[in-house]
C-alpha cells in the first residue's frame, strides 16, 4: 500500500511540475513581445549566454574535430578510403556532434548559470520586489533570457561544427597528409544543404529551446533557499542532458532514419 501511495505521489508531482512548466512557457511566450520592444535587455542576455559560452564551444569543437579526424583516419586508412575523411568528419559534426555536444555544453555553461541567477533572484525576493513595483518578472527577467538562449544555441552549434571541421582539416590534411582537394570535394559531394545542414540547425534550435526552457523554469520554480537553488541548478543540468539526448534520438529517427 505504502509503495503504491509513494508511486502515485511521485506521478502526481511529476505531472504537476510538467503542467506548471507548460503554463510557465505560455506566460513566457506572452511576455516575448515586450522583450522585442526592448532589445537592450536581449542584448545583455545574449552577451552572458551566448558570447561567454563562445570560448568553451569553440575550444571543444576544435578538439572534437581533431580527435574525430585522427580516429577516423586510422580506420579509413585500412580500407584505403582516407580521402573520404572530410565527408565523415563533416557529416558526424553537422548531423550529430555539433548540435548535441554544443547543447550539452550549453546546458552546463549557460543553463546552470540561468537557473542559479533566477533562483537567487527568487531567494533574495528580487522577483517579488519587482511584482510589488508592478513589473512583471516574467517579462523583465525570464523572457529576455529565454529568447537569448533560443537564439544563441543554433549559432553556437554552427560555430562548433565549423570549428570542428577546421580541426579535422588541420589534423587530416596538415598532419596526416590527406589530399586537401579530396577532403573538401568528398565533403561537398556528400553533405547536403537541406538534408544535413538545415536538419542540424533545426536540431540545435530544438535543443536550445528545451535546454533554456528547463533552465529558466527550474530557476523560477525553485524552492527559495540556498539548498533549493543548488538542487535546481543540478536538476537543470541533469534534466537538460536527458531531454537533449532523448530528443536527439527522436529527431534523428524522424530526419535521417527510415523508422
Amino acid at each position: 500500500m505504502d509503495w503504491l501511495q509513494s508511486l502515485g505521489r511521485t506521478g502526481l508531482i511529476l505531472f504537476e511540475r510538467l503542467g506548471r512548466g507548460h503554463l510557465f512557457l505560455l506566460r513566457v511566450f506572452g511576455g516575448m513581445s515586450d522583450t522585442l520592444l526592448r532589445p537592450s535587455l536581449l542584448i545583455a542576455q545574449m552577451y552572458s549566454i551566448g558570447v561567454l559560452s563562445f570560448t568553451i564551444i569553440a575550444i571543444s569543437g576544435l578538439n572534437v574535430g581533431m580527435v574525430l579526424g585522427l580516429q577516423m583516419y586510422n580506420t579509413l586508412v585500412d580500407f584505403g578510403a582516407e580521402d573520404s575523411l572530410g565527408q565523415v568528419v563533416a557529416l558526424s559534426l553537422v548531423r550529430e556532434l555539433g548540435p548535441v555536444v554544443a547543447a550539452l555544453l550549453f546546458a552546463g555553461r549557460a543553463g546552470s548559470a540561468l537557473t542559479a541567477e533566477i533562483g537567487l533572484m527568487k531567494a533574495t525576493e528580487q522577483l517579488s520586489g519587482m511584482e510589488m513595483m508592478a513589473v512583471d518578472p516574467i517579462k523583465r527577467v525570464v523572457a529576455p533570457r529565454f529568447l537569448a538562449g533560443m537564439l544563441s544555441m543554433p549559432l553556437l552549434a554552427a560555430i562548433f561544427s565549423a570549428v570542428g571541421i577546421l580541426g579535422g582539416f588541420f589534423v587530416g590534411v596538415g598532419l596526416l597528409g590527406v589530399d586537401s582537394g579530396a577532403f573538401w570535394s568528398q565533403m561537398q559531394a556528400n553533405v547536403d544543404l537541406r538534408e544535413d545542414i538545415v536538419n542540424g540547425v533545426i536540431k540545435s534550435f530544438v535543443f536550445g529551446f528545451v535546454a533554456t526552457w528547463i533552465a529558466v523554469y527550474e530557476g523560477y520554480d525553485t524552492v527559495p533557499t540556498t539548498e533549493g537553488v543548488s538542487r535546481s541548478t543540478t536538476r537543470t543540468v541533469v534534466h537538460s542532458a536527458f531531454a537533449i539526448l532523448a530528443l536527439d534520438f527522436v529527431l534523428t529517427a524522424l530526419m535521417f532514419g527510415g523508422i
Partner: peptide, 11 residues
C-alpha cells in the same frame, strides 16, 4: 559559421 557550412561544406 552557418555560411561556411552552407557554402564550403555542403553542395
Amino acid at each position: 559559421a552557418l555560411f561556411m557550412l552552407a557554402m564550403k561544406v555542403s553542395n
